[in-house]
Amino acid sequence: MINKLLILIAVTVTFVNIPAYAQTRDVTITRQWARASIGTMRPTAAYLTITNNGKDAVILDRIKTKIAAMAHIHNSTTNAKGISSMAPAGEIRIEPNQSVTLQPSGLHIMLMDLQRPLIKGDSFELTLIFENGQHITTDVPVLAISARGPKE
């Protein structure tokens, strides 16, 4: 009887905790991944999709992660002359029932001043902090330098 009760408690805790981990309230993070780095000198990039299922727009304020002293959202763009450049992305605002996708050749989280190399197969925690004070922490798997994104 006690055993059954313990299992019930374990199952309940598991179900309550795991979704809450990356899915606080109405904002969800999916398809998160980062590109493996070459040592710690060179910056690398992380990508993810932020979906707002709530009733109010949310604005991403900043990113925190122990793996990089600086984690900024940048945008890669290519102009009409074929010249690509990278600049801070400015405000990332996600309207209700909308998603914003950070993906190669566009919006990305640039991870600078790496505290340790990002090695393929590892993962690290990354926290998104929104202007409404909401924090969402997600576990980001590290894929190969030559990766295009997580498998479908």
Partner: peptide, 16 residues
Amino acid sequence: FTYCPDICPTTLENIS
């Protein structure tokens, strides 16, 4: 250039 975290690895991946 190798300090380029987004466009360059993406293009090299395309070429690969």
